[in-house]
Computed example of a mutant assay.
Amino acid sequence: MPVTRNSATLTLGGIVLAALLAVIGHAGVDGLDPLSLTVSDYAVSESGGAIHLAMLTLAAASAVLVLGLRRLDRPTGAAGTRRGRVGTAQVLVAAWAGGLLLAGLIPTNPPGTEMGTAAYVHRYASVVAFLALPLAGWLIAAQLPATARTARWLRGLTIASLLLAAVMVWSAYPGDRAYYGLIERALILAEVALLTVLATVGGRVGAVTPVRGA
Rank of each mutant, 00 (worst) to 15 (best):
T209G: 14
T209A: 15
G68K: 01
R5Q: 08
G181D: 06
G13Q: 08
V121Y: 06
L163P: 02
L35S: 15
T76F: 09
V169E: 06
A151D: 04
G104D: 08
L56Y: 05
G137D: 01
A89R: 00
R149L: 08
S171N: 06
V16M: 10
R71T: 09
L195T: 05
V197P: 07
N6D: 05
R71W: 05
G156H: 05
A103H: 12
D73V: 14
I15L: 15
V16H: 07
F130N: 13
R185H: 12
V91P: 02
G112K: 05
G202R: 04
G48F: 03
V197G: 07
T150H: 09
R185I: 07
V23F: 09
G203Y: 11
V211M: 12
G137Q: 03
V29M: 01
A190I: 03
S62A: 15
P110K: 02
V169T: 14
V205H: 08
L21E: 04
S40Q: 05
A136H: 13
A8Q: 10
V64E: 14
A78V: 14
L58C: 12
L154E: 02
Y180L: 10
L144W: 02
V192E: 05
N109Y: 11
S171E: 10
A132R: 09
L194I: 03
V169Y: 13
I15M: 13
P210C: 09
S62Q: 10
A151H: 13
A166G: 11
S171Y: 06
G116W: 01
A207K: 13
V121K: 01
A63N: 03
A132H: 09
G13A: 03
M168C: 14
P210F: 03
V93G: 08
Y173L: 13
L182T: 12
